[in-house]
């Protein structure tokens, strides 16, 4: 049984729904979560769709932890954590989240080609906030991109967001971080550690 009293979560199976845009490190983050679940002794399923992701499309990943997990896919309205690496993608998949599930978003926008070509409008922050508040009061916005820029490598923004998730779940950095360290190049372990810590602190 998973219990996060501060977040109002009590579940037999914990559902993480990750969304982002190709190239943001969404897949790496979901790999970390899946291996973490296995390390913690749970049955784990991690489902994602490859194929079009490198060409600027949405990237989706489902990660589930539990004593026994069956479906690889999280049903609509059953995600405990919606972890969005980009705001529009977070908004697009808002219906995945449980009422009062956690919406954790990187406060960063990547303009899709439909917007840059002038055929559509990117929603305003106010619209995004209002929509998310209709679904849940557990909203967490972290400016991962700026933190990563401060640290000198925009690529670690995904690890900042993972750090924020770790902070929300009140988990131990020393349980989580070794898995991240094993998945990044040796020379960038230290900057990833800083990024992760900054994410934890952001909550």
């Amino acid at each position: 049984m998973f219990s996060f009293p501060k977040l109002g979560i009590k579940r037999d199976v914990l559902n993480f729904f990750l969304v982002g845009v190709g190239g943001q490190g969404t897949i790496l983050a979901s790999n970390v979560l899946a291996e973490l679940g296995l390390k913690l002794g749970y049955d784990v399923k991690k489902a994602e769709i490859h194929g079009m992701s490198q060409r600027g499309g949405s990237v989706i990943s489902h990660v589930r932890w539990g004593e026994q997990v069956f479906s690889p896919i999280i049903a609509k309205g059953e995600a405990d954590f919606l972890i969005a690496f980009e705001k529009l993608e977070g908004l697009r998949f808002l219906d995945q989240i449980r009422p009062d599930g956690v919406f954790l978003v990187n406060d960063y926008q990547i303009v899709p080609v439909t917007v840059s070509s002038g055929n559509a409008i990117y929603p305003s922050d106010q619209d995004i906030r209002e929509s998310t508040h209709e679904i849940t009061s557990n909203n967490y916005w972290v400016d991962c991109r700026s933190i990563a820029e401060e640290l000198g490598n925009v690529k670690v923004a995904n690890v900042v967001l993972l750090g924020a998730l770790c902070g929300l779940m009140e988990a131990e950095l020393e349980t989580w971080f070794p898995i991240i360290a094993s998945k990044v190049p040796q020379k960038s372990v230290e900057i990833n550690r800083l990024a992760f810590q900054r994410g934890v602190d952001a909550i």
């Binding site: 845009v21 079009m52 060409r55 600027g56 499309g57 949405s58 609509k76 309205g77 529009l88 993608e89 908004l91 697009r92 808002l94 219906d95 009422p99 899709p112 080609v113 439909t114 917007v115 055929n119 559509a120 409008i121 990117y122 929603p123 619209d127 929509s131 209709e134 679904i135």
Partner: peptide
């Protein structure tokens, strides 16, 4: 499922 009233820009590959 909870409707989102906004019309969202597509993100086609």
């Amino acid at each position: 499922t909870a409707p989102i009233s906004l019309e969202l820009p597509a993100r086609p590959p």
